[in-house]
Write a protein that binds this DNA or RNA. Structure first.
Lengths: 139, 139
DNA sequence: TCACTCCTGCAACTCAGTTGTAAATGCAAC
DNA sequence: GTTGCATTTACAACTGAGTTGCAGGAGTGA
C-alpha cells in the first residue's frame, strides 16, 4: 500500500489517522490549509496538529507561507527527509480558487540585493490566476 | 512636527497613541512585529490593533509576510495611499538578528512559470544574514 | 503472544485577535 | 475661547487557534 510505504519510508508508524492525512495530501494537487485537512479528518483536532508536526519533522510535508499569513501544508519531494529539506521552489496562490500550488524551482535572483547581504534561502510566492481558473469559459 | 504631518497627510487624526506608533516605525529601519510595537506602546493592546488597522487602510503602513508566518509591519513609501499601494519590493529576513528589511523593487521573474498561469503580484522574501550582522568582527 | 514504545483523545489551558460600548479626545465651525 | 460632533481610546467579554499533560489504546518487533 502506497500510503503506508510513504509513512514507513519516513520512519513514521502507519496508523489510521496518519493514513487519512497522507491520503488527503495525495488526493489534492495543491497545498492544504489546516481547515481543509481538518474537514477530511474525523479524529481529534489535537491529533491533527501533532500528526502534521511529526510529518514536518520527518520531512514528509513542508509548510507553505500563504500570502495572508495563514499556514498551508504540502507534500515534500522525494529528496526530503528528517535531515535535509529542499524547498527552494516557488509557490503560486490563485486569487480565484484560493488554492496554493508548488512550482518548479526558481532561478537564483540574488543579484538585485544591495552589497553586504548574504542569502541562504529565497521564498517566492506568486499571486494571480492559476492554470485551471485561467481557462476561457468557451473550452 | 513630522509625525503629525505624516498622519494628517493620510487623513488620520494626530493622537498620542498614533504618534507613539509612528515614532516607533520611524525609529526602526526594519519591519516591526506586533510584540515589538506593543513593547514601545503603553496604551491598550486593542488600541494598537485598531491603530495598525487604520494605518494599513490609510496606506501609511503595509504588512510584511514573515518566513514563519508571523505578521510584521513597515512604513509604506511616499507613493502609497488609501487608494493605491505599491509593494512589489522584496523583503530580507536576517537569521542572526531576526529583523526584516524592505529591499528595492525586484525585477519580474515570471518567465519560470508553467504556461497558463497569470501573475498579478510577486512576493519575494530572502533569508540569510543582513548587512549589519554580516560585518566581520574585526571591523 | 507479549512487552514496549509511540499515538490518540480528552480536559484544561494560554494567547492572539475581535466585538460592543461608554468615556475621552481631536478638530473644525462659530 | 467655546461648543458640538465624529473619531479614538480603554475596558470587559468573547472566540478560535494552538499547546501541554496525562491516561488509555494501538502498532511493531522480538
Amino acid at each position: 500500500m502506497i500510503t503506508s510505504d510513504l509513512l514507513r519510508r519516513h520512519d513514521l508508524r502507519s496508523t489510521p489517522a496518519r493514513r487519512t492525512v497522507v491520503d488527503s495530501f495525495l488526493g489534492a494537487k495543491s497545498a492544504r490549509t489546516l481547515a481543509e485537512l481538518d474537514e477530511a479528518f474525523d479524529g481529534d483536532r489535537i491529533t491533527l496538529y501533532r500528526t502534521l508536526k511529526s510529518f514536518e519533522e520527518a520531512g514528509l510535508i513542508h509548510r507553505v507561507p500563504d500570502a495572508a499569513g495563514q499556514p498551508r501544508y504540502a507534500l515534500c519531494g522525494d529528496d526530503c527527509g528528517p535531515k535535509a529539506h529542499d524547498h527552494t521552489h516557488a509557490h503560486f496562490q490563485c486569487d480565484d480558487c484560493g488554492q496554493t500550488y508548488c512550482l518548479p524551482r526558481v532561478a537564483p535572483i540574488t543579484q538585485v540585493l544591495p552589497k553586504g547581504y548574504r542569502v541562504q534561502e529565497v521564498h517566492v510566492t506568486y499571486q494571480g490566476t492559476c492554470q485551471v481558473c485561467n481557462v476561457p469559459a468557451a473550452l
